[in-house]
């Protein structure tokens, strides 16, 4: 019970990311089919994204969009609504992981598209996406080998 309160509950996001990442890595190492390997790669990338975004979470914080232009602030003509008052960083979630993962998602799509294009090209040459069959065809100088 002590272990649960100390290790599992405050750190459940890290458990989730490690488990997801290992599922992806298992698929990348063990699976024979190239498409299944790519699915594993996507799960792996998603685990990293989950890890980064969960790091940027702050208890009780809002999304990192400063609400100076929100109507409720503009209507209350109190000194607190002065647009030049200092912004408390604890009120907003950490923007940095969001920025890094925004680009990581798009790069993930690009790498996935590239990998699918390469596997389509492999399928055109070898008529299979199974790794052992491709290796066997390479060893006997199959149709895909030009040299």
């Amino acid at each position: 019970m002590d272990l649960l309160n100390q290790y599992l509950i405050p750190h459940f996001n890290y458990w989730a990311y490690v488990i997801l990442m290992m599922i992806g890595m298992h698929a990348m190492i063990v699976k024979n089919n190239l498409i299944k390997k790519l699915i594993g790669m996507s799960i792996f990338q998603t685990a990293i994204i989950l890890f980064y975004v969960s790091i940027g979470v702050k208890e009780g914080a809002d999304i990192p969009v400063l609400h100076h232009h929100a109507p409720e602030v503009a209507e209350s003509h109190t000194p607190a609504a002065d647009p030049h008052h200092a912004v408390d960083p604890d009120h907003y979630a950490n923007p940095l992981p969001h920025v890094l993962m925004l680009t990581a998602i798009v790069v993930g799509v690009s790498t996935l598209g590239m990998a699918l294009a390469i596997s389509q090209s492999i399928y055109k040459d070898f008529d299979t996406l199974e790794e052992n069959e491709i290796l066997a065809k390479i060893k006997q100088g199959g149709p895909g080998i030009d040299v």
């Binding site: 790091i55 702050k58 208890e59 960083p89 950490n94």
Partner: peptide, 11 residues
């Protein structure tokens, strides 16, 4: 801890 505003990443 999850959601800690004083964690190193949150500065």
């Amino acid at each position: 801890d999850f959601g800690d505003p004083k964690s190193p990443a949150n500065g």
